[in-house]
Write a protein that binds this DNA or RNA. Structure first.
Length: 427
RNA sequence: GGCCCCAUCGUCUAGUGGCCCAGGACACCAGAUUCUCAAUCUGGGAACACGGGUUCGAUUCCCGUUGGGGCUGCCA
């Protein structure tokens, strides 16, 4: 049987990180089985749909490389189809009108949901359902509801596996009943557990804590300079594991190993610290040319390739770029008072830097090796350790005590600026 | 409230009755290395929620308790 799965978001807001993982798991399963990944936009709630939101979904999937094979289909364009299907149920006597809405005659017997992840789930009827198990499939305004269009589309699109969030598990008996009402066997279900905040609360863009609210949206990771490969890799590891102690691994490997039954049944918490670590791993593994290309949007216009290459291995996020490179592009860089205090408190500092400037004035060629040799020679001559020159020099030219290799930094900065900064600096 | 799902270090996880006084990763701590930071290397602390069973033997099976999550809409 040819596997067909789908990602069916509704374009009513931002792209939630949990939805992204659902999309990812569908994509992984399609690629693992050589099946088809369908994208379907569930835009039946006309009051909440926005064009912007649709854009966000499409851009997000593209950014992550989760390419679909079919679609996007739009439910808003399939109204006639739903209409026909409603008529079919009414004609069969399985649906009826009440208070202007059309309701489906739900069976009172408990329905077993065979789930590839949760196992066989049998749901007893709730008190409310005991009173009246039927549910609305078409609102009194004429619009069909989620449960109905979802089932009709899965049926029409011949979806074989429904991989979705566990929040849908309790509603699945309704869906199964609808499939049967149409005389069709339901697809296989795989309900994946939820992703929660570190503190166990729901990830939501409306979280009162702004830091937590940011984590809920994929957009945050794009803006902060995470690599799509890193986000994708981290998400793979939430509820799924290669079981061989690997964590950073190419997506091709995940595709090879991924399968539904081994997905964990318990909720996972989202640890952005680990994601950030993983991003650093991916960043450092990047070829320099590729890094420079990806770094440009974050460089604030200062994208000298030599400078970018110099700080490549220092970053965990691309958005950290400006704080690492600022002093390369302006002579008005801030001095960290702690750094000045720590490295430039010796009374001889000004004198030493003046001598270093003198020595560097004649350095040729202006490259890291020459600058290193020259500095060490001066240190010997002054009878001090190289560190007594290195640290003040670093602070003088960059304002900071931390940064790239000093000599390479000086080489990129260039003779004129280095000499000027050494001479202007007064401890 | 009712119904459903879940429960291994702080977090993500390995573990399907003895190989486990529980392994890996992030984070944390200490040391090594280095011109600083980062990276890297070495070492360390850190978990089977609780109570009953079943069994010669339970992290692993069953029941209960507690805790967490979900559903309970003419939202999706």
């Amino acid at each position: 049987m040819n596997v067909r799965v789908r990602f069916a978001p509704s374009p009513t807001g931002y792209l939630h990180i949990g939805s992204v993982r659902t999309a990812l798991f569908n994509w992984l399963y399609a690629r693992h089985t050589g099946g088809t990944f369908v994208l379907r936009i569930e835009d039946t709630d006309t009051t909440r749909n926005t064009e912007q939101s649709l854009r966000t979904i499409l851009d997000g999937l593209k950014w992550l490389g989760l390419n679909h094979d079919e679609g996007p289909y739009f439910q808003s364009q399939r109204a006639e189809l739903y209409q026909r299907r409603v008529q079919e149920l009414v004609a069969k006597g399985l649906a009826y009108e009440r208070e202007g809405a059309i309701r489906f005659k739900m069976t009172r017997a408990p329905i077993v949901v065979p789930d590839l992840i949760a196992g066989k789930v049998t749901r007893e009827l709730t008190d409310r359902e005991l009173q009246d198990p039927d549910f609305v499939i078409v609102r009194s305004d004429g619009n069909p509801v989620f449960h109905f269009v979802n089932v009709v589309d899965d049926l029409e699109m011949k979806i074989t596996h429904v991989i979705r969030g566990e929040d849908h598990l309790s509603n699945t008996p309704k869906h199964i009943a609808l499939f049967r009402a149409f005389g069709v066997e339901p697809p296989q279900y795989a309900h994946i557990p939820m992703i929660l905040n570190l503190d166990g609360t729901k990830m939501s863009k409306r979280d009162p804590d702004p830091a937590k609210a940011r984590l809920a949206s994929l957009q945050t990771y794009v803006e902060d300079g995470y690599l799509p490969e890193a986000v994708r890799n981290y998400l793979c590891l939430l509820g799924w594991s290669p079981k061989d102690n690997r964590d950073v691994m190419p997506i091709e490997e995940v595709v090879k190993l991924f399968d539904l039954p081994q997905i964990l049944r318990s909720n996972a918490r989202f640890d952005v610290t680990k994601l950030t670590w993983m991003n650093g791993e991916y960043l450092r593994a990047l070829p320099t040319a590729r890094f420079i290309e990806l770094a440009k949007p974050f460089s604030g216009g200062h994208d000298d390739p030599q400078v970018l290459a110099l700080v490549k291995d220092k970053l965990k996020l691309l958005k950290e770029l400006p704080e690492h490179t600022g002093f390369f592009f302006t002579d008005d860089y801030p001095f960290d008072p702690e750094a000045v205090k720590k490295s430039c408190s010796a009374p001889e500092t000004n004198d030493r830097l003046a001598k270093l400037a003198e020595s560097y004035a004649g350095a040729s060629p202006w490259d890291a090796a020459t600058l290193e040799a020259s500095l060490k020679a001066l240190a010997t001559q002054l009878g001090v350790k190289p560190a007594a020159l290195i640290h003040p020099c670093r602070v003088a030219v960059s304002g900071k005590s931390a940064g790239p290799s000093l000599y390479h930094m000086l080489a990129v900065l260039g003779r004129d600026r280095v000499l000027a900064r050494l001479r202007n600096f007064q401890a």
